[in-house]
Nucleic acid binder design. Structure first.
Length: 368
DNA sequence: AACCCGTGGCC
DNA sequence: TGGCCAAGGGT
């Protein structure tokens, strides 16, 4: 039953070809490489999880400008950390990184335990691949990574069957990654495999004609580069509905409440959200008696990776500030509080309120 | 083991 | 345009 896909070349050969390519075509001036400290590498690796480099760049600069040390991050409020993460997505990364910063200050004297793999894995938000990336890049010691780039590269190199999300396939990919990882120049090697996958062996339109492995790559020799890695089995997206109460006061502010610490947009601030119109009415009867609910506006659809959300905004005028319950805040567009606000919600605020949000509040958007 | 968790780029 | 996916990890 062991049809083990044998490595197609020796580690030394792989390393030599890859690093020769990297020296000429790799990225050598990414911001987290300038001072390549463990903290800066850590922040970049967390932001780069499931997120492309171009998206991360402005967020990284702003984040480091505010939290230049791990102590500064540890001392901050979670709300401010989430605020700087607004628009980047996967907000558990920010919550976990904030938690980890406090753990490192308390238990490791403020130094990331980059010489202790188990201690790294014990930090929330750092798994096997991210730990390997941080250790290899910041110390140069041997550590193995297996990110999407490496998975794609190794899948093609060996024409590895199966979707990489399958544990059995992923185990083999880890074995292969272990095989090819060299013992020296780990900083360059780790950056090189990621650059290689991101810029040459990319998902669509890989540049096989310029690839240093095109003579040994099984997928290329077969002319089947696009078949690997095999795609994830598709499934239909569930649809959820959310009635969002856009509570406006006389000054054009909107009432926001903090969401539970886990789940969608965990810890972020949104207008009061309800699953149906009845619970919305019930809430209004209790907190804003006499409020007039308008007929449902056209839904505002947002597609997540795993479900589709149909947002139904409900603008309601509310002039009595004390009518609203505790635990929320008025969101003032002129002086927005440093809170985390999800991207679609921000869009909603722009549309519903008689104002425009300030462009510098959204590092992902250019030009404004 | 299968889900859950965001957003933007790409074709 | 809509489906697919990206420097994954937690549960």
């Amino acid at each position: 039953m062991t049809d083990e896909p044998a490595p197609v070349m020796a580690p030394e050969d792989f390393q030599q070809r890859l690093l020769a390519w990297f020296d000429r075509h790799g990225r050598h001036d990414l911001p987290w490489q300038k001072p390549r400290t463990p903290y800066r590498v850590w922040v970049s690796e967390i932001m780069l999880q499931q997120t492309q480099v171009a998206t991360v760049l402005p967020y990284f600069e702003r984040f480091m400008g505010r939290f230049s040390t791990i102590e500064a991050l540890a001392e901050a409020e979670q709300d401010e950390v989430l605020h700087l993460w607004t628009g980047l997505g996967y907000y558990a990364r920010a919550r976990n990184m904030h938690k980890s910063a406090r753990l490192v200050v308390q238990q490791h004297d403020g130094e990331l335990p980059v010489h202790d793999m188990d201690a790294m894995l014990a930090l929330p938000g750092i798994g096997r691949s991210t730990a390997g990336a941080i250790i290899a890049q910041s110390t140069g010691r041997r550590a193995v990574i297996l990110d999407g780039n490496v998975k794609r590269t190794l899948s093609r190199l060996h024409a590895l069957p199966g979707w990489p999300g399958q544990p059995r396939v992923e185990r083999k990919l880890w074995e292969l990654a272990e095989h090819y990882t060299p013992s020296c120049r780990l900083t360059d090697y780790t950056q090189a495999v990621m650059d290689f996958g991101a810029t040459l062996c990319r998902r669509g339109q890989p540049e096989c004609s310029r690839c240093p492995f095109n003579d040994v790559c099984i997928a290329n020799v077969r002319g089947e580069q696009k078949r690997f890695p095999e795609s994830k089995p598709k499934k239909t997206l569930p649809v959820r509905r959310a009635w969002m109460l856009m509570l406006n006061d006389a000054r054009g502010r909107i009432w926001l409440e903090q969401r539970p610490p886990a789940g969608v947009w965990g810890g972020l601030w949104t207008p009061p959200q309800f699953d149906d119109q009845m619970s919305l009415r019930a809430w209004l009867d209790q907190h804003v008696p006499g409020a007039i609910v308008s007929s449902p506006e056209p839904v505002f659809t947002h597609t997540f990776s795993h479900f589709r959300l149909e947002i139904i905004p409900q603008p309601v005028r509310c002039d009595r500030l004390d009518a609203v319950r505790e635990g929320g805040c008025w969101y003032d567009p002129e002086f927005p509080p440093a809170l985390g606000v999800a991207a679609p919600v921000k869009l909603l605020l722009e549309r519903q309120a008689p104002f425009a949000l300030k462009p510098q509040d959204s590092p992902g958007k250019r030009g404004g």
